[in-house]
Every structure is written in C-alpha cells, then in structure tokens.
C-alpha cells in the first residue's frame, strides 16, 4: 500500500530524513519508535504534505500513485489520514460543518455523490459513540477548548468518519489518561484493523501498543530506520532504551 524509498528531506535547509525506506502492506499495523529529534513527526508531516517539508530525494508510492506529487487534500482523498500530535484549533468552525465539507470534498474528488446532512449526522454519531464522545462536542468549534485527551479522541472520530485506507498517527497516545488511551486504542482497532487498511503508529511508549498490537516495529534514529522487528522489539526498547537497541 505504501512504499517509501530512500526518502530524504530538509526543513529550512536542515536535513532531517536521510534515506528512509519502509514498506507497509494492506492489513498491517506498523509502529515507529525512536528518540526525540529522530525525525518521527517529520516523517508524518512529509507524508501528509505539510508546506515547508522539502523532499530532497527518494520517492513515496501510495497505492500506485506518486504521493509526493499530490497536494495535501488530494492525499486525503486518496485515502491517507494524518493524526496530529497537536491537533489544531479552528475558532468559529464547527466539527460537524468541517467534517461534512471535508468528507464531501473527498467524495467529490473520487466521483462519489455527496452525503446528505442526515446521513452524515448518523455517521458522525456512530463514530462519536465509538470513541465515547458526546455529540454536543462535535457541534462545537474544531478542538477549541478541548482538553488534550478530547483533542485526540476527536482526531479518532475524524478518522472514523473519513474512513481512510492508511492512517499515520503521530503520538496519538500523548496527553491521554489511562481510560482515554484504552478508548483511543479500541477506536483505532475498530476503524483500521481491516484487511484492506493499514496503520503507521508513531509513539514513544509501549503502552499504546498494548491496545493496538503492531505487526512490525521499527526504530527511527538519525533520519533512517535503523532496526526493524516484530512486537517484541518494542518491549526490548522499553527495557533497554534506544541506545542499546539501535
């Protein structure tokens, strides 16, 4: 589904990713762990197409398409979802309005009919229930006044509504208490653990992986994948630290 080959980039002239390669197949859940500053969030933003993240080498193939040539909204329509480490507040724009317009923009670009207001609300309610989020919160402006945990759950509700093929989740577990961590973990499984979908989890800790069991674990350090393994690698990292493993 996703093939990253020898990807290098820079931000404001500073090289961050230095020849990163990674392949993710449908049905797989991958976790990327690594020390601060290794380039984990940079990888997420680069795949999402954030302005200022200049690709200097390599390629990314997403289901047969050149991902790096696409605008951020086209990447979303092609089935990519980026879960933000720090979801952005948008004053005055309600979640419901934003998500309905976003979903219908995606559907339009895929040649599908727009979803009616009623059908959309039904879908939104279903996903909000899944993440135990009050529907009233979705009527409020996007992320404004939400706690850290509420923002992350709102991200997962968005993911449920938009129903992507590939989710790249950047530290979805940060800022979550124990209950919210479990709810988000279960949400990720319910929405994304399917034969035709895949997940790339970026995390510092084993605790999210207790709920969302990865098939593969990678260590990102110095802008490259320095080691890959199965779920046991995460446990090894937790015990011995990055320096010992990488």
């Amino acid at each position: 589904m996703l093939t990253i080959s020898d990807l290098s980039n820079e931000i404001a002239g500073k090289a961050i990713l230095k020849g990163l390669s990674l392949t993710i197949n449908a049905g797989e859940i991958h976790a990327i762990m690594g020390p601060n500053g290794a380039g984990k969030s940079t990888l997420a933003y680069t795949l999402g197409g954030r302005p200022g993240y200049e690709v200097t080498g390599g390629s990314v193939d997403f289901d047969g398409q050149d991902l790096l040539a696409m605008d951020p909204h086209a990447r979303a329509a092609a089935g990519l979802f980026l879960g933000f480490q720090y979801p952005v507040e948008i004053p005055g724009v309600s979640n419901v309005q934003f998500l309905r317009e976003a979903l219908n923009a995606q559907r339009k670009s895929r040649g599908e009919e727009p979803l009616s207001g009623g059908a959309f609300l039904k879908l939104a309610r279903e996903k909000a229930d899944l993440l135990r989020m009050d529907m009233d919160m979705l009527k409020r402006p996007v992320n404004v006044g939400f706690s850290g945990g509420e923002k992350k759950r709102a991200e997962m509700v968005q993911m449920g509504i938009l129903d992507p093929k590939l989710a790249i989740l950047d530290e979805t577990d940060s800022g979550l208490d124990i209950d919210a961590l479990r709810i988000c973990g279960e949400g990720i499984n319910a929405i994304m653990r399917k034969p035709d979908k895949a997940v790339l989890l970026i995390t510092h800790y084993q605790r999210l992986l207790d709920y969302v069991k990865p098939d593969f674990v990678h260590v990102l350090a110095g802008g490259r994948i320095v080691r890959s393994g199965g779920p046991e690698l995460a446990l090894e990292l937790e015990q011995h630290g990055y320096e010992a493993v990488a």
Partner: peptide, 14 residues
C-alpha cells in the same frame, strides 16, 4: 497556516 494545513489534510481543497 497551521489551521489551513489541518483543514486540507482532511480533504478540503485550499
């Protein structure tokens, strides 16, 4: 700019 990227990352054209 961050807000704009956030909205676009969900599928809204610029």
């Amino acid at each position: 700019a961050q807000g704009l990227f956030y909205l676009q990352s969900r599928g809204l054209p610029p």
